Computed example of a mutant assay.
Amino acid sequence: MRLKHWFESWLPALALACWLGMPAAHSEEIVVSNYGVSASGMPFAIAMEKGFFDGKVSGILSSQGGGTTVRNLLAGQIAYAEVSPIAAATAIRQGAPLKIISNNVQTVSEFGWMVKPDSPIKSIADLKGRKIGYSSPRSVSQALAMLIVEKAGLKASDVELVMTGGLGEALVALDLGAIDVAPATEPLLSKYRDKYRIIATADELFPSMSNVVGVTTDAAAASRGDFLRGIVTGRAKAVAFMSDNPEEAAQIVAKVYKLDPPIVLEAIKHLTRKGEGLPYWSTGKFDLAGLKEMWRAQILVGAAEGEIDWTKLIDVSFLPEAERSLK
């Protein structure tokens, strides 16, 4: 009886000790394409550091490309992923049980096109007969290269598009003279703007083109509403923080992305310019015009085909009521 009494008296304390030593019951990993590399994922670094996810996220997994991220989402126990809208829409059209729940990036403002300092190319009007680099077939950089040619009033045959295998590799190809124009994205754009000359930026040419969305599975949407709303809300807080506190945000992102803080600060200032058009990082509200323009761009490179009704792929219920309209 004494042993039983001792055990019962200490049971609450033992339970508390065990609970304190365990990770939170609802803390789990999420997937963000190219996290630690692409500017699109920077708000997640802020949200993790500042605790904006309220302990719901234990870690962030990175994966290369939208297709890989979608496969990871469908194959594992992961409830949320940040991915390209084209990868998400294509998977849904093929029967994947997915829902798009937030519009995370509204433009391709992270892109710019660089030439050597002594290049005779001053703007996209000078591209005729030139070699323009892009990373890989069906990539956003290939689609944007084709749209630049279109913007310049040229035909596809007026330029030569050259695959470089990556954006870092494109700058090497530019140095070697294999191409005349190299695409670059933030933070590379800010890192090398003193070495090369920028002839155009995407925010000048393509003001609305949604490039990244938040995605979940049908099963998680039905059973994990609080978790998903916490992710969307926490990321939105991070976007606001980056705009209001760029210096502190740069210090946080620099550690995750392994870059010098001044370079990250330059990138954040470039992408969070207040009152200068559509913001790069969205708090989640959908921009249908931007999604449609991205789909059209991907059709140009064979990564998408046919018409698509985005409203049938989107679930706005995880956004604040004020941001649920679809325009």
Score class of each variant (00 low, 15 high):
residue 3 L to K: 15
residue 4 K to E: 14
residue 4 K to M: 10
residue 6 W to L: 14
residue 6 W to S: 07
residue 9 S to N: 11
residue 9 S to T: 11
residue 9 S to Y: 11
residue 9 S to C: 05
residue 10 W to V: 14
residue 15 A to W: 05
residue 17 A to H: 07
residue 19 W to G: 03
residue 21 G to W: 10
residue 22 M to C: 12
residue 28 E to K: 12
residue 31 V to M: 10
residue 34 N to F: 08
residue 37 V to Q: 09
residue 37 V to L: 13
residue 39 A to P: 03
residue 41 G to H: 02
residue 46 I to A: 07
residue 47 A to W: 02
residue 50 K to I: 06
residue 56 K to T: 09
residue 57 V to P: 00
residue 60 I to L: 12
residue 60 I to Y: 11
residue 63 S to V: 02
residue 63 S to D: 14
residue 66 G to K: 04
residue 67 G to Q: 12
residue 71 R to S: 13
residue 73 L to F: 06
residue 85 P to F: 08
residue 88 A to F: 05
residue 88 A to T: 05
residue 88 A to R: 01
residue 90 T to R: 13
residue 94 Q to M: 15
residue 96 A to Q: 09
residue 98 L to K: 01
residue 98 L to I: 07
residue 100 I to H: 02
residue 101 I to M: 04
residue 103 N to C: 13
residue 103 N to T: 05
residue 105 V to C: 09
residue 106 Q to S: 15
residue 106 Q to V: 04
residue 107 T to H: 05
residue 110 E to Y: 03
residue 113 W to T: 06
residue 116 K to A: 08
residue 117 P to S: 10
residue 119 S to I: 13
residue 122 K to S: 14
residue 123 S to F: 15
residue 124 I to H: 03
residue 127 L to G: 02
residue 128 K to V: 11
residue 128 K to E: 13
residue 129 G to F: 13
residue 131 K to L: 04
residue 132 I to V: 09
residue 136 S to L: 09
residue 139 S to D: 14
residue 146 M to H: 08
residue 148 I to Y: 01
residue 149 V to K: 01
residue 152 A to N: 06
residue 154 L to H: 03
residue 156 A to H: 14
residue 158 D to A: 10
residue 160 E to S: 11
residue 166 G to K: 03
residue 169 E to I: 07
residue 172 V to D: 07
residue 174 L to R: 01
residue 174 L to Y: 00
residue 178 A to Y: 00
residue 178 A to G: 00
residue 179 I to V: 14
residue 180 D to M: 02
residue 181 V to A: 00
residue 195 K to L: 15
residue 196 Y to R: 08
residue 196 Y to M: 11
residue 198 I to D: 01
residue 202 A to H: 02
residue 213 V to R: 01
residue 216 T to I: 08
residue 218 D to P: 02
residue 218 D to Q: 13
residue 218 D to H: 14
residue 222 A to C: 10
residue 223 S to I: 09
residue 224 R to G: 06
residue 233 T to G: 04
residue 233 T to R: 10
residue 234 G to L: 08
residue 238 A to C: 11
residue 240 A to C: 09
residue 241 F to L: 09
residue 246 P to K: 07
residue 247 E to V: 11
residue 248 E to M: 07
residue 249 A to V: 02
residue 250 A to H: 03
residue 252 I to D: 00
residue 253 V to I: 15
residue 257 Y to H: 12
residue 258 K to E: 15
residue 262 P to K: 04
residue 265 L to N: 03
residue 270 H to I: 00
residue 270 H to L: 09
residue 271 L to C: 04
residue 276 E to A: 11
residue 278 L to D: 01
residue 279 P to Q: 10
residue 280 Y to E: 05
residue 280 Y to G: 02
residue 281 W to V: 04
residue 283 T to H: 05
residue 284 G to Y: 03
residue 284 G to V: 04
residue 289 A to L: 11
residue 289 A to Q: 13
residue 293 E to T: 13
residue 294 M to Y: 15
residue 294 M to A: 13
residue 295 W to N: 08
residue 295 W to L: 08
residue 297 A to T: 05
residue 297 A to E: 03
residue 298 Q to D: 13
residue 298 Q to C: 08
residue 299 I to C: 13
residue 300 L to I: 10
residue 305 E to K: 15
residue 306 G to N: 12
residue 307 E to R: 11
residue 318 F to V: 05
residue 319 L to H: 01
residue 320 P to H: 08
residue 320 P to R: 10
residue 320 P to W: 06
residue 326 L to Y: 10
